[in-house]
Amino acid sequence: MILNTDGTKPIYVQIAEWLETEILSGSFNSDQKVYSQYQLAEIFNINPATAAKGLNILADGDVLYKKRGLGMFVSNDARERILNKRKKHTLKKLVQDLVLEAERLNVSEEEVFDMIKNVKRNWEGT
């Protein structure tokens, strides 16, 4: 992954999201140790404090847990938590934007639903 440094999203958030994706894709299993802040700093060429902040977000969300002196490990229910969080926040935000834009364009709810269904049908068809 290449960090997006143009300022739209803080680096540590991007780090957290990247780790989440890694966990989702199965690179890390439950109770497996993830990268340390120094490894992350090295990988992404960022300050270790920033990397630590990314790790702390995940720890705060119980995706990771700390073992004193050993590092951060993937929680048992990390996948569910990530999925949950993404549903709750990321998807919600996207829907919010969708609704807002639809309102600006005077598009009715039904039309929006139809558009969603169409997109899904197209993907399933191919």
């Binding site: 960090l3 440094t5 060429n45 300050n47 270790p48 920033t50």
Partner: peptide, 25 residues
């Protein structure tokens, strides 16, 4: 923009005074 990822803190100086001093994040 080139160095901000490397930094932990930032010290912003304006007119011979410290304007901001906080973590880059």
């Amino acid at each position: 923009e080139e160095i901000e990822d490397l930094l932990e803190d930032i010290l912003l100086i304006k007119d011979g005074r410290v304007h901001l001093h906080l973590p880059v994040a």
